[in-house]
């Protein structure tokens, strides 16, 4: 064939129809999908087996499930909260302890140096007596106000060796705390740690304390005398 006639050339557009269909079913489907939309019947719902065990009911779509009486249970209101009732439990426990250890509030007043006038102040000479009878005397260097853990630091020199003791104010081991001598002038610091330096060290306070004890005994002796006289 040298050259196709013009009629044949026009018929060439139908050539695709004459082509054999591809063998693969899948390919046919793909081609078809691209070309047109196919009708398929709406799927009918599958039958649900009768007497379906309870644990499988949740797998059904919601509208098919039998109505659960539990489903719309009201949400119970919360019970009263302990957190709201007692906002500061640590404080409550500490307060309960303080009520036992310091029922009169005397010790608190003796060391609350910011509020109480007659309290111990840094620089005072203090004598502490413990339950077992041992006393400890010293200059008060600092007072640490921390509620139940309130403590004060005393410094003294015993046998020419500096000794420091921090005593918990509310400790049941503390029998009594006495102010032996007030500081001569108001100290301009709350913590007198500089008194540890040799330049500022007060040395021993034993002499002052023994004097105080002697005076106290004399005073109490005087007091005792009239009582006896009355009797």
């Amino acid at each position: 064939m040298a050259s196709p006639s013009p009629i044949l050339r026009q018929l060439g557009c139908f050539r695709s129809l004459l082509k054999p269909q591809p063998q693969s079913l899948l390919q046919t489907g793909l081609n078809r999908r691209a070309l047109s939309t196919v009708y398929s019947a709406k799927p009918t719902p599958k039958p649900i087996p009768e007497n379906l065990p309870e644990q499988f009911i949740r797998q059904l779509p919601l509208h098919l499930r039998p109505k659960d009486p539990k489903a719309r249970r009201p949400i119970p209101p919360p019970p009263p909260s302990a957190f709201n009732k007692c906002k500061d439990p640590v404080g409550a426990v500490a307060d309960a302890q303080l009520a036992v250890l310091d029922p009169t509030g005397e010790r608190r007043a003796l060391f609350d140096y910011r509020r109480s006038q007659r309290s111990v102040k840094p620089g005072d000479i203090v004598r502490v007596t413990f339950k077992n009878g041992d006393p400890f005397n010293g200059v008060c260097l600092s007072i640490r106000l921390r509620g139940l853990d309130t403590s004060f630091l005393l410094r003294n020199q015993l046998t020419k060796v500096g000794v420091e003791m921090a005593v918990k104010v509310y400790s049941p081991n503390v029998e009594s705390v006495e102010i032996v001598q007030r500081a001569a002038s108001r100290k301009r610091r709350a913590r007198l740690f500089y008194m540890r330096n040799p330049k500022h060290d007060m040395g021993t306070v034993e002499n002052i304390v023994t004097n105080y004890i002697r005076q106290k005994r004399m005073l109490s002796g005087k007091k005792r005398a009239p009582v006896k006289a009355k009797k």
Partner: peptide, 30 residues
């Protein structure tokens, strides 16, 4: 045990023999 704190201005010791009895007969210091 009651929470109070004690400290000294120096470190000091007393010599003892192997059985734990002090070698010296007197001590000078707290």
């Amino acid at each position: 045990p009651d929470g109070s704190i004690v400290k000294f201005d120096d470190n000091a010791c007393v010599l003892v023999n192997k059985s734990g009895d002090p070698i010296g007969t007197r001590m000078n210091g707290v």
